[in-house]
Structure formats: structure tokens, C-alpha cells
């Protein structure tokens, strides 16, 4: 049994320790907001926070997450009101939407570590997340908007 703390809740799951965190979240805990995209850490659809870092859950063994704090898109905010989620809604960023859990989770680490990112900072943080629909111009705008809201203190 592996102890996982996901979105503030403790779980004890019966999983092969080699199983990627992605599949433990999706198939065992039914947290399907985190997506499978490539399985080889190329696309970023599976990004979750592990002790605050934007790890790729498709290559992170569930055993690595044992005893540490996992936050998924479902737990990023209580009411879908993280400044990034609100900015994504304001700018209508998603098209098919499949990659955006990962996009938002990656952007959340960027904004935490750099509240006022430049375009170059956004490139540095977000180039690991593929969007096949090509929403990149809107992702960039939404991150700038969330940063501006956060700076004004009305991010939520």
C-alpha cells in the first residue's frame, strides 16, 4: 500500500510502486483531469504539482509521490478561481481543452516563482507543454493577465 496525499486528502492505494503517478491518479483515484498525452515526458498534458514542483506524472513513479503532497488540476483552487483559471476563462484559451490541465499547472509554478513574467520567462516555463489546437498566443495573454490581476491583489 502506498500513502498518497492528493489535493489535501490522504489515500492509501494498492498499486504497483512502478506504476506512473498518472495512472494511479486516473484509474485508481478517478482524478481524470490529469491527462495522458505521450507517456514519455514530451507533451506536458500530465503535469501535476509534487511538493510544489510541476512534475510529469507519466514518468513519475507513484512510489516517488509516497508521503509527499500532490496537487492536481482538480485541487489547484477551491472554486476554479486561481488567477490562471480565471484568466483562461476570461480569454477563452482552450479549444479542445485536453492539454490545458497541464498548461495551467505549469503556468502556476511560473507565476508562483515569478509574479511578473516576461515573454521570455513564459517561453522558458511553458515550452514543455504541447497544444495541438495552437492556443499558444492565448496562453501567453492569459498568463500576463493573471500576473496583472495578481499584482493588483484581485486575482481571485
Amino acid at each position: 500500500m502506498i500513502s498518497l496525499n492528493v489535493n489535501g486528502e490522504s489515500h492509501s492505494i494498492d498499486a504497483d510502486p512502478e506504476m506512473p503517478l498518472l495512472w494511479a491518479l486516473r484509474d485508481i483515484l478517478n482524478l481524470t483531469g490529469t491527462k495522458y498525452g505521450c507517456g514519455v515526458a514530451q507533451c506536458g498534458a500530465c503535469v501535476v504539482h509534487l511538493d510544489g514542483e510541476a512534475v510529469r506524472s507519466c514518468v513519475t513513479k507513484v512510489s516517488r509521490a509516497g508521503g509527499r503532497k500532490v496537487i492536481t488540476i482538480e485541487g489547484l483552487s477551491a472554486n476554479n478561481d486561481h488567477p490562471l483559471q480565471k484568466a483562461w476563462q476570461e480569454i477563452d484559451v482552450p479549444q479542445c481543452g485536453y492539454c490545458h490541465s497541464g498548461q495551467i499547472m505549469s503556468a502556476a509554478v511560473l507565476l508562483r516563482e515569478n509574479p511578473n513574467p516576461t515573454d521570455a520567462d513564459i517561453d522558458a516555463a511553458m515550452s514543455g507543454n504541447i497544444c495541438r489546437c495552437g492556443t499558444y498566443p492565448r496562453i501567453r495573454k492569459a498568463i500576463h493577465l493573471a500576473a496583472a490581476w495578481q499584482a493588483k491583489g484581485n486575482g481571485r
Binding site: G33, E74, S77, N80, Q85, Q89, D92, G97, Y98
Partner: peptide, 11 residues
């Protein structure tokens, strides 16, 4: 959009 920003959209 709302469903696609918090993981609740079901693919």
C-alpha cells in the same frame, strides 16, 4: 471553458 480549466470536462 469553465469545464476545461478545472479538469471536469469529460473526454
Amino acid at each position: 471553458t469553465v469545464l476545461k480549466t478545472n479538469g471536469t470536462a469529460i473526454f
